[in-house]
Computed example of a mutant assay.
Amino acid sequence: MDSGLDLGLDAAALTARLVDVASVSREEKALADLVEGALRGLPHLRVDRDGDAVVARTDTGRDQRVVLAGHLDTVPIAGNLPSRLDEAGLLWGCGTSDMKAGVAVQLRLAATLTDPNRDLTFVFYDAEEIAAEFNGLKRLVEKHPDWLAGDFAVLLEPTGGRVDGGCQGTLRAQVRTTGRRAHSARSWLGENAIHKAAPILARLAAYEPRKVEIDGLVYPEGLNAVLIEGGHAGNVIPDSCSVTVNYRFSPDQSEAEALERVREVFEGFEVVLTDSAPGALPGLSHPAAAAFVAAIGTPPAAKEAWTDVARFSALGIPAVNYGPGDPTLAHTREENVAVAAVLEAEQKLRRWLTA
Results as ranks from 00 to 15, higher is better:
184 S>L: 04
186 R>A: 15
188 W>F: 15
188 W>G: 15
190 G>V: 06
193 A>G: 09
193 A>V: 09
194 I>T: 12
194 I>Y: 06
194 I>C: 07
196 K>G: 01
196 K>Y: 08
196 K>H: 12
196 K>C: 04
198 A>G: 12
198 A>C: 02
198 A>S: 13
199 P>Q: 13
199 P>N: 11
200 I>E: 00
201 L>Y: 10
203 R>W: 03
203 R>D: 05
204 L>H: 04
204 L>V: 06
204 L>A: 01
205 A>V: 11
206 A>L: 01
207 Y>W: 13
208 E>F: 02
208 E>L: 12
209 P>Q: 05
211 K>R: 15
212 V>E: 06
213 E>N: 11
214 I>V: 15
214 I>A: 11
216 G>R: 02
216 G>W: 04
216 G>A: 04
217 L>N: 01
218 V>C: 08
218 V>L: 07
218 V>Q: 06
220 P>I: 05
220 P>Y: 12
220 P>R: 07
221 E>M: 00
221 E>Y: 11
222 G>Y: 00
223 L>D: 02
223 L>K: 07
225 A>D: 08
227 L>C: 08
227 L>M: 13
227 L>S: 04
229 E>S: 14
229 E>Y: 04
231 G>C: 06
232 H>R: 14
236 V>H: 10
236 V>C: 09
237 I>T: 13
238 P>Y: 01
239 D>Q: 05
241 C>E: 04
245 V>Q: 00
245 V>K: 02
246 N>R: 02
246 N>T: 02
247 Y>C: 08
248 R>F: 07
248 R>A: 09
249 F>D: 06
251 P>Q: 05
252 D>Q: 10
252 D>F: 05
253 Q>A: 14
254 S>W: 02
255 E>Y: 08
256 A>C: 07
257 E>A: 15
258 A>V: 03
260 E>V: 11
261 R>P: 02
261 R>Y: 12
262 V>D: 00
262 V>R: 03
263 R>Y: 00
264 E>I: 02
265 V>R: 11
265 V>L: 00
266 F>A: 03
266 F>Y: 06
266 F>G: 04
267 E>F: 07
268 G>A: 05
269 F>P: 12
269 F>H: 12
270 E>T: 13
272 V>R: 15
273 L>M: 08
274 T>C: 03
275 D>T: 06
276 S>H: 09
277 A>Y: 10
278 P>K: 06
279 G>F: 09
281 L>Y: 08
281 L>F: 09
282 P>Y: 01
282 P>W: 01
283 G>D: 13
285 S>G: 13
286 H>C: 12
286 H>P: 08
286 H>S: 14
287 P>K: 01
288 A>W: 12
289 A>V: 00
289 A>C: 03
289 A>I: 04
289 A>T: 03
291 A>Q: 13
291 A>P: 05
292 F>W: 07
292 F>T: 03
293 V>A: 10
293 V>S: 06
294 A>Q: 14
295 A>T: 06
295 A>P: 09
296 I>E: 04
296 I>V: 15
297 G>S: 04
299 P>H: 11
300 P>I: 06
300 P>T: 12
302 A>E: 09
304 E>P: 12
305 A>L: 06
306 W>L: 14
306 W>V: 05
307 T>L: 00
307 T>K: 02
308 D>A: 13
309 V>Y: 08
309 V>E: 03
310 A>P: 09
312 F>H: 04
316 G>R: 02
316 G>Y: 08
319 A>H: 05
320 V>D: 09
321 N>G: 10
322 Y>C: 01
322 Y>R: 03
322 Y>P: 03
323 G>T: 03
